[in-house]
Simulated assay, not measured.
Amino acid sequence: MKQDRYFEILKYLHFSDNTQPNGDKLQKMGKIWDLCMQNFQNTLRAHKNISIDESLMLYKGRLSFKQYIPSKRSRFGVKIFSIVDETTGFVLFCMIYVGKDDRLLPDIRTFGYGGAIVLKLLEPYLNNGHHLYCDNYFTSPNLAKYLLERTTYICGTLRKNRKHTDPPPVRGPNKMKPGEIIVKSCQGVMTEYWRDKKVVSMISTSHDHSMVSVPQRYGGGVVMKPKTVLDYNKYARGTDYSDMKKFYNIRRKSMKWYKTLFFYLVDLCIFNSFVIFKSIHPGTKTKFLSFRLNLIRQIIGSMQPTQAICAISSSGQPNRLTERHFLEYNPSTKSRQHGGRICHVCANKQQAGPPNTKKPRKETVFQCKQCKVALCPTACFELYHTVQNF
């Protein structure tokens, strides 16, 4: 695909009918987001341990539900709540935050907004014995008790100002000492306070107050830590694991928020495909970057070119080495009226040169009429049609 063709498609990329407004803030995304989320849920059956967390998709344009979270790397963007399968790292479902939703008001009054988000994401997974791990934005004693009644267990950090909690004093003679632990339990919900460098507050319906010996990172000693803290650090990293897609993404800067969100969705689909690929081939050592490159090659390979370039003759040699070839001018494009293109031979010379050395780019307005390859009319034209490896 030519560059102009790509930008033309990107210019008219659209997912909804503007003549039929429905008042939904996500109308511009059409049905493509819901379709992908439904396919995610139908693709993988969730394992025992799952996690819920929030992420921020970078976007700095004008948008009514754009969020500012200074602790995030992006800081500005669209907030997305995700539920992740901890065994594989597969993203099961994502929900875009567009403001306070009236459909969540009953749950918000009882469990807070974070708890209402948890119940919305967990709706297909209740009464199945799953173990949920999430941070203190979502947890509360009321939520833990309700999930326990629905045969779903929770473990996570806990804020000191939650209702129905009794945190220990931070200052004064009764403050906790390093290594001290305070455990409180009621109706199957356990709150645990452990003093490390600071007081760590945990809530759980799937643990007891057992302690586990862990080797110190430095010094070679052994330290005792609560089992809740260890399991939380182990299983509450699903969203962090899926964030590796940020380092290899297809997103491009755009003034339209729905295009940016679409590219985010494509990256999410590619990452989930990589997770499924690893589950089908458990012994593979393929990295995420290699998987993306192979995917690109397969997509390009499935598109048959309109004209064969450098075909093979009956003698086994490429036609560019055996047939007669002539020069012609490159066709002009919208961005390059003169038809200038980078010479194929000069580009290969740059790649074969020493690393970390800058070489001038060589552009030409000529190409081989038969091969349709941009070439300089002097030595490069002769090299390309006489040397085997070019």
Rank of each mutant, 00 (worst) to 15 (best):
K48G: 14
V373W: 10
Y133C: 07
L375G: 14
Q187D: 09
Y137S: 09
R103I: 09
M255W: 02
I108P: 10
Y125P: 05
R109D: 09
L92V: 06
I80P: 05
A374W: 05
T333C: 11
C376L: 15
T88D: 05
G129D: 07
I342W: 11
R159Q: 12
R5C: 02
T43R: 04
S242Y: 10
Y232F: 06
C343H: 08
H47G: 11
R292H: 14
T110M: 07
D34A: 11
A236P: 00
P169V: 05
D107A: 15
F90Q: 05
G283L: 15
N18K: 12
R252F: 10
N319C: 07
G339V: 09
T157A: 11
S315W: 00
Q41C: 04
V199N: 03
Q41E: 06
Q38A: 13
E123A: 09
V365M: 08
V84L: 00
K160L: 14
F263K: 02
I296S: 04
M303H: 14
I154W: 06
L132E: 15
R324F: 12
N128I: 02
F271N: 04
T139G: 03
K246D: 13
S64D: 04
L104W: 13
D196T: 07
Y232H: 10
L13H: 01
L119F: 03
H130Y: 08
L147C: 09
I299T: 10
K184E: 10
N319K: 10
P141M: 00
R109K: 15
P106I: 04
S140N: 01
R5S: 03
S82R: 07
C186L: 05
N142R: 12
H207P: 12
D135P: 02
T151H: 15
Y59G: 08
R361G: 00
L122Q: 11
V189Y: 03
S290W: 02
N174K: 14
F277Q: 12
E180N: 12
L321H: 05
N294T: 00
V387L: 10
V345Y: 04
C376M: 08
E149Q: 12
K28G: 00
R251E: 15
V345C: 06
Y97K: 10
A308F: 10
G188E: 01
M303L: 12
K362Q: 07
I117E: 04
Y137W: 13
S74A: 14
M303G: 02
P215C: 01
K278F: 05
N348R: 08
Y264W: 04
L147W: 09
S335A: 14
K11I: 00
D17G: 06
G238A: 05
R103V: 10
G221C: 12
K256Q: 06
F90D: 04
V266F: 03
V223M: 13
C371K: 11
N42A: 05
T228P: 01
Y235G: 00
L143S: 08
P318Q: 03
V229P: 05
Q307S: 03
N272Y: 04
Y329L: 13
H207Q: 14
L143D: 15
Q317F: 07
F366H: 03
Y153Q: 10
F7G: 00
T286W: 01
Y113S: 14
R45N: 10
Q298R: 08
K184G: 06
I181K: 13
L35Y: 14
F76V: 09
R109A: 11
Q367G: 02
N348C: 07
